[in-house]
Simulated assay, not measured.
Amino acid sequence: MENIGGTEPGETEERADSLSYFVEEHEPSWVWSEDSYGHYLRVDLPDFKMEDLKLEVVSPGETAVSGERVVNDNSKCIYFHQKYKLPENSDPENITAEFDGGILYVTVPKKKLTTVKEPEYEENATTTSDENHHQETLAEKSSMDDHRLFSMKYWQREDEATPLEKAFEMIKKNKGILLTAVLAFSIGIIVALHRLESGGD
């Protein structure tokens, strides 16, 4: 966790009161972005310097940026104190920040993902009627498919197969012959077209 610049919370107001500054509150523009590694907060702070700013984690789910600068021959103090809610899956202990060209870049790493544990099912778990129906439908379909595959593969009872299944099975068994027939047919068409073109000349 980086600490940028200077003053403790509440010190800005005390300093302003003690030196009789004209105090102006500033509301910086900001935006969050993210990628697979972290969350990134960009705060626009034109005319501020790094020593004018402070970054702190105020709670596990919140960070704060504050700052002040004196202008007009020490007669005016511009300050701000802004809190930002950290996105989910943030690692607040490893926040870093960089200030460049009037922009504060705060990097909040994402927590490393833990492996997802498979849900455990109890034997006497209750499910809704829709879930039961869905499970029974899938189970029945799987059982029917298994029965059909088992009967065709091991018992050669092709009478249980649909016409489409029979056609696919025949193509699989005779794919060499079928490929040769398609190839011969294609060559025949090419030769016939070549003869037509030659005869036409």
Rank of each mutant, 00 (worst) to 15 (best):
L53E: 03
I187C: 08
E120T: 04
I177G: 03
E2M: 01
A184L: 04
A97P: 08
V23M: 06
I95N: 02
S20K: 09
D130R: 13
E122Y: 10
L178K: 07
E25Y: 00
L164H: 08
E51T: 10
I78R: 13
T7Q: 07
H39E: 07
T137C: 09
N94W: 00
V71R: 15
E120H: 14
E93V: 06
Q156W: 08
Y37M: 06
A125M: 03
E197L: 04
D47N: 10
W30K: 13
A161F: 12
P92Q: 04
K175H: 09
T126I: 12
R42P: 01
G61N: 10
L113V: 02
D146K: 09
P60C: 05
I190T: 15
E25G: 03
K83L: 02
G176M: 15
N94Q: 12
V57S: 00
Q135A: 13
E118V: 06
P46V: 07
E2L: 01
K153E: 15
I190K: 09
E14Q: 14
K112T: 03
S129C: 15
V108K: 00
G102R: 12
G176Y: 08
P9R: 07
N132C: 08
E2G: 08
S59T: 00
S129L: 11
A161H: 07
N174L: 08
E93T: 10
I189Y: 01
A139K: 07
F22C: 06
S20Q: 11
M152I: 08
L164V: 05
Y79P: 00
V116W: 03
H81A: 11
G38V: 13
M170F: 11
E93Y: 14
T137A: 15
V116A: 11
E88V: 01
D145N: 13
P92G: 06
T127Q: 12
H81N: 15
V58T: 11
E158M: 05
G188Y: 11
N132M: 04
F22T: 12
D73I: 15
I189C: 04
A64D: 01
P92H: 02
W30M: 13
G6P: 15
K83D: 02
R195P: 05
G67E: 10
E56I: 02
V23Y: 02
S186T: 07
E34H: 01
H39K: 11
D35Y: 09
R15C: 11
P60V: 00
Y154L: 07
T12D: 05
N124Y: 12
I190V: 04
W30R: 15
T115D: 06
T180P: 07
M144N: 12
E62N: 04
I4W: 11
S129M: 14
E51A: 05
D100N: 12
S36G: 06
Q135H: 15
H39D: 04
A125W: 01
D73Y: 10
N124D: 13
P60I: 01
L53R: 07
Y79E: 02
E118N: 08
T128S: 07
D145P: 04
T126Q: 14
I189N: 12
D91K: 00
I190E: 00
L53H: 10
G188R: 07
D130N: 12
S29V: 04
D130K: 12
N72M: 10
V70T: 04
D47P: 00
E56C: 09
I187D: 01
F150Y: 14
L86T: 00
D100Y: 14
D100I: 11
S75C: 01
L104H: 04
E27S: 14
